[in-house]
Computed example of a mutant assay.
Amino acid sequence: MNQPIRAAVVGYGLAGQVFHAPLISADPAYELSAVVTADPERSASAAARYPSTRIVPSVDALLADASSYDLVVVGSPTPTHVSVAERTLDAGLPTVVDKPMAVRVADAERLIELAARADVPLTVFQNRRWDGDFLTVRKLLREGALGEVWRFESRFEWHSTRARPQWKSGTPGTEGGGVAYDIGAHLIDQAVRLFGPVTDFYGELDARRPGAVNDDDSFVALTHESGVRSHLSMCSLVAQRGFRFRVLGSEAAYTVWGLDGQEAQLKSGMSPLDAEYGVAPPGAHGKLGRDGALTTVPTERGAYGDFYARLAVALTGNGPLPVNPVDVLEPLRILETLQRKVPPDT
């Protein structure tokens, strides 16, 4: 019998606590061997939920015992992604980096080159490739249900007044704290997966909160080589949400509302193994067709766990990585360029 993959999760904030630790612990191919956090409250929370998991106070302490692990997941704040991943790759440990892999393209390229030289697997947690609504759009495109698609509209909107972590409220663009880096890394990745490389782009990165520095209301327009135009909106201050996706084609359109439910389910403590996990309720299903002649399209089941299932196969040498890290370079190049166009804070 194969031994489980011994995984360590660095960071126990949103990424580690809500996504990585639950997904890893639910997959029999893995053992959640360690969680790295120096925060006493988070340490206690992780120990209570995963009593057989080591709680490690630092990356130094983790790497001092590197041979005890087979995989490291970097779920720490974005500004630390590159420095932590450099150390885990240097230690010969296969590494998952939460999105965005880096703030600057040059740093992402350096990680990719380091992984290639060391012959150590490196991948990026672009989990929203496994959103149910995104999987539904992919299915409709494969089936030709829309005819020739000419516009893809994607909106990720919510309303939050809670205080943001310090690293998310710093200098514009330098630390990747705004919604463009946070959500745009997903939306651009999705658009490129669907419609191919980008030949031109435009963006508006605005800060709406009083005293805000980093963007909280942003829009990015892409022109793909295929001729499709993608209009991507992301905002954390929306009082009335719009559609999640609207895809316009020569024969029909597809529109769906509401955010994929997997994040909320994981936050609630639902196991990825639950029969209802990833299942969208009938009222959240999208509509296909033309006004006056619409049909309901059941949303595909969301499947964030597929990322780790595919990674387990890749780590045994039997398949490709779930996300090729080279894929993230184009979205990062777009985001970095748009951030550089933001006037300096005065």
Rank of each mutant, 00 (worst) to 15 (best):
I5K: 02
V10Q: 01
A15Y: 11
F19I: 10
A38I: 13
E41S: 15
R42L: 15
A47G: 15
R49Y: 01
T53K: 06
S58P: 05
V59D: 03
A64T: 12
D65Q: 15
D65I: 10
H81W: 03
H81Y: 05
V82E: 14
T88G: 03
A91Q: 06
P94A: 01
P94W: 00
T95M: 08
A106L: 12
D107S: 13
A116F: 06
Q126K: 09
D133T: 15
E148S: 13
E175Q: 15
A185G: 03
D206T: 15
R208G: 13
N214M: 12
N214S: 11
F219P: 08
A221N: 11
E225A: 14
G227K: 06
R229M: 05
R244P: 13
F245G: 06
L248F: 12
L248Q: 06
G249R: 04
E251N: 11
W257Y: 14
W257V: 07
Q265E: 11
L266V: 03
P272L: 06
E276F: 07
A280H: 15
P282A: 07
A284D: 12
A284F: 07
A284Y: 01
R290A: 15
P298T: 00
A303C: 15
F307M: 12
A309Y: 04
A309R: 03
G317K: 09
G319A: 02
P320K: 00
P320E: 01
E330A: 05
L335R: 02
V342Y: 04
P343R: 01
